[in-house]
Amino acid sequence: MKKKHYVVLLSAMILLILAITSFIYYSINTALASVDQNAGIIVPDKEPVYHFAMICENVDDPFWLSIKKGVEKASKEFNVAVEFNGPGISNMDEQWKYLDMAIASRVDGIVTYVWDEDQAGELINKGVKKDIPVVTIGRDAKASMRTAFVGMNAYSSGVQLGRMALAATGDEGDVAVLIGKNQVGGTMLQNLMISGIKDAFKIHDRIDFSIIEYDDLNFLGIEDTIKDLLTNRPELDTIVCTTASDTIAVAQRLIDLNKVGYNIIGYGDSPELLRYIDSEVVFGTVTANHEQMGYDAIRALMDIKEKGRTSAYFTVETRLITKANVDEYLKPGED
């Protein structure tokens, strides 16, 4: 009887130990997976030949999430690991820290967003002097020792935004163009885009348009701006947005206010924005091929590592998406 009791007790202890071991194993693996996810480490299927780092402006912005898809494609094709790092909001100090850390880690190559040409250029030169090739993306640091620049033609994108607004208004209307007045490092790029919009409008004297600045460091900045526009501009019929995040915020705000009769001209191609176009909440969007930007940035680093040279500039195509062609961009399950 005692022997039987002992066997039962021993079996129970073994089961308990196995359960505890399984729990610990699961917890460790979950934690490791979480670390990889938070760190944004993109790894290929095989042992990587190089270890690159990408420093972005805002890891949660649709613009950078699209770029990340291109990086993932390049990671598999070229068999490289890529650390995808950056703050959750635009923050110069955080971007400086991530770029400096990548240099200190002696990675094989760096792709970086330029938040400030002088400050970022100083770090870029520091990395290149340590034999780390650096590619700039989205915004350039021409005076630095960077290897290549990957981006869009901001002026051309502005012209396309203006032309789409004209198509929406029928060459006659009241248009507000929204820009954030605190966009980190974005003055030159923003000015080029605004110049393109103005040039698209300049021969249409029946278009009344204005540039509206809002505080993009204030969470409620764009919402308050939209409310003020709707209150003080009764003739307003078209709103032009110059960033992907602004487009989503404007569309959501107008839905919340039950004011969906306005023409919203957006920027970007996130799944959420494409759904807004499909449901005709947003008239249309102008977007660069951001996935191609991510892919080309890694390709430029590979050219340098494998061939010792690469193109100095990679400019991606601009796309116009409206209700007429949005089905070409919607993926299964997103319509």
Results as ranks from 00 to 15, higher is better:
197 I>A: 01
127 G>W: 00
298 I>Y: 05
24 I>R: 12
175 V>Y: 04
158 G>E: 12
11 S>P: 13
94 E>G: 04
44 P>F: 11
18 L>S: 14
158 G>F: 10
235 E>Q: 13
35 V>Q: 04
290 H>Y: 05
184 V>H: 00
144 S>W: 06
100 D>T: 09
96 W>H: 13
134 V>M: 02
138 G>Y: 03
209 F>D: 06
185 G>P: 00
222 I>L: 15
77 E>P: 09
329 Y>I: 13
292 Q>P: 12
328 E>Y: 14
270 S>K: 08
109 G>L: 05
251 A>K: 13
260 V>R: 07
176 A>F: 06
268 G>W: 02
35 V>G: 01
226 I>R: 09
210 S>W: 00
128 V>S: 07
328 E>F: 15
141 A>T: 02
208 D>N: 15
149 F>Q: 01
247 T>Y: 05
11 S>Q: 12
3 K>W: 11
197 I>Y: 01
184 V>T: 06
35 V>W: 03
160 Q>E: 05
243 T>M: 10
110 I>M: 05
19 A>E: 10
331 K>Q: 14
274 L>F: 10
144 S>D: 04
13 M>W: 04
228 D>R: 07
277 I>Y: 01
217 L>D: 11
169 T>Q: 12
311 S>Q: 09
228 D>L: 08
117 E>H: 09
57 E>A: 14
281 V>P: 01
274 L>M: 09
